[in-house]
Write a protein that binds this DNA or RNA. Structure first.
Lengths: 227, 227
DNA sequence: ACAAAAGTGTTAAGCCTACACCCATGC
DNA sequence: GCATGGGTGTAGGCTTAACACTTTTGT
């Protein structure tokens, strides 16, 4: 077996929706290379550790969440020979979707971690270290695409949510407004997308809204439509 | 940098449509582990070689094709610590779609390479070495899904093709019959999916059919519908 | 009462499905 | 002529997009 010298890492695109905007968790690098630049959280895979285990461990370290219930999926692997000046490092990127956390981001590296508007970062391709701009772009595009045909948007929501909160997720991720009335009808009519919790809330103002939780559907027929 | 001992490889899911059926290129392993078992073609990434370069090199070796014009895309990365009995090997899987080759499969390893019905292999989860059953399943599912919303089906066709040949691709990959008349209308009306070549052929029998080549579209609006 | 947000009804346009039907070739 | 596949037309059902309208709360 030719085991050439090689580092294996995972990088995380951790997304949330806060204040109606799509935000990504970035850390400011305290050590070279790219010292002082923003980067995606990530770290090396330990011996005998599965890739997804690494990603969940990093996620827990960065967000302070026990990452059991967080949606996490692999996006792509980046392995250009010169992508890391320290040597050959191949990175497997994961996408994590978290609800708007009531608790602040806390963890060992948290002093330098913050939520940043994803669109702002995507508007400036030079702001991130390494090839993290490309990784972020791929992760966001994955999220945007999956909202169409999967019930993934609920991963951004707390366990119980209103239809308009769910709509807020779509509007933030896609960056466009949706008709509240047609959205409501479509979501509630798609089988097993959401299920009524039987309770209501007035936290969004106006008439009390029914609360829902995730349904059992894994794909949406018909899909949600973007613009 | 902690460069633990680690192998990095790529494995290829090479698909084609022959005789109206979806087929995958497999090799019979001549050496342990899994000697004598079927496996996906693949090999180790060389020092300073990009991942996709490795995949294209393997593709050329296995199919004898100069792989420039072949559709190739990354699917996922598999890194369970025990997936290879020889040690820690992480594999990046690629999906390749090739036209029905007039030339036989030829190459250094070709003596043991053959086209096998994908559905047959997917019916028996124990036939492939390593975790290649999972990789194949993921690759085929990717292909099936992408036919819906991308013009990817043309990657299975020669440079010029008829609408019914294109329909044959859909029917083989999805494993279900489609209405020839509605399919024809939909394909030719979707902007930039296919463009008329201006010539006709009678190679499929019956009335001469127009020949087309790929259009410039990258996504299909509206998508093709499965079942 | 008024503002605000939830939720329902309606209508016109577009898309999909199914199938009848005609066209152009080889034999 | 007849078989074979290519290609067009059309009617009914379903989905969507746009928006009028009613409901239920907080202030």
């Amino acid at each position: 077996m030719d085991f050439e010298p090689l580092g294996l890492a995972t990088d995380l695109v951790i997304l949330t929706v806060r204040d109606g905007r799509l935000q990504v968790l970035l850390i400011r690098r305290g050590i070279p290379p790219y010292r002082g630049r923003w980067a995606l959280p990530g770290g090396f895979v330990r011996p005998n550790e599965d890739l997804e285990t690494t990603a969940r461990r990093e996620l827990a370290e960065e967000t302070g969440l026990s990452a059991e219930r967080i949606h996490l999926e692999q996006v792509a692997t980046y392995g250009a020979p010169d992508r890391d000046p320290r040597g050959r490092v191949v990175s497997v990127a994961y996408l994590a979707l978290v609800p708007d956390l009531p608790a602040p981001v806390a963890g060992s590296d948290a002093a330098s971690a913050s939520w940043v508007d994803a669109t702002d970062v995507l508007d400036d391709s030079g702001r991130l270290a390494f090839d993290h701009y490309r990784i972020l772009a791929d992760g966001v595009e994955r999220a945007r695409a999956k909202l169409e045909y999967s019930p993934l948007a609920t991963a951004f929501c707390p366990p119980e949510f209103t239809i308009s909160e769910l709509r807020g997720v779509y509007e933030a991720v896609w960056g466009l407004p949706l008709d509240p009335r047609n959205f409501h009808r479509k979501v509630t009519k798609t089988p097993d997308f959401v299920e009524p919790a039987g309770t209501t809330t007035t936290r969004d103002g106006g008439r009390p809204a029914q609360l829902f939780h995730r349904g059992t559907a894994t794909t949406l027929h018909p899909p949600m439509t973007r613009g």
